[in-house]
Amino acid sequence: MNGQPAIQVRDLHKRFGDLHAVKGISFTVPAGQIFSLLGPNGAGKSTTISILSCLLQPTSGDALVMGHSVQREPMAVKAAIGVVPQEIALYEDLSARENLDFWGKMVGLRGAALRQRVDEVLEIIGLADRQKGRVAKFSGGMKRRLNIGIALLHRPQVIIMDEPTVGIDPQTRRNILDSVKELNRQGMTVLYTTHYMEEAQELSDQIAIMDQGRIIAQGTHQDLVQIVGELDRVDLTLNALPDWVTDRWQQIPGVQKVIVGAPSHPQATDGERTVTLLVDDSNLVLPRLFESATQAGVRITSVTIQEPNLEAVFLHLTGRALRDE
């Protein structure tokens, strides 16, 4: 099997009636890598993952997992993948061990093999001493770990995680990111979806940025950041927003892009507006911006300058922010 990619997605389409949720995406995940699908809400990440886990049929195109087609060999695909859903898909009125026992039977484990594997998984997810406890009484982090553990029972070669860190506390998130890395270190291929660029950046060997059903950029973190090159990202808060801002600032030498109202400053209060710019060198551009603001009687109330990152890439490619918080 050496050299065979773990996942190959080829020109995959999915329509829900009129809605074209996935519009012909292709990507390849080499075995042993962590691959992230990064994209905002509704990008089509979960749809893609559902197709890979044989929960949805693609409208056209195909996907191969460990060389098996999701359309023609769903059973082989199911045996090769462990799916960690976004939700805590467990039985809360059963204990951790009873859950693992049940899910183990569902993937075909029995008897001594089942008992042994459940013990191993309990160790991996660090719940060995809480195995008899009812899941309903567990903390959110413990439930998340069990949710992952269930996907590991049949020793899958590929593990697919759909936004496993949505809505959890920082400590649990840290915990999950660490276990993803650990699983990968043990040889598992990981397909990870998220809309947090920090996670994609920290974990991934490769990242595909998805938006509105398409992959708009793909590569390593370095590759992607190259897209915005040496650009700096400057976020400004203004006390008012005259209409000429975009046009006039666009003409300042060194300004590559002006995006009005990119909501990256949740603290922006009433009347205040934010403007985000991608610029070649903030040191040269900033004085010109202040000058032009002063001439027009607009006050700049805050300035943030960021090194190039995935957020900037997304902004550059779509004109929108990755997160709509």
Binding site: L55, M75, K78, A79, I81, P85, A89, W103, M106, I150
Partner: peptide, 9 residues
Amino acid sequence: ALRRLLTTA
């Protein structure tokens, strides 16, 4: 969990 069952055998 019902949906997850569908990812098993």
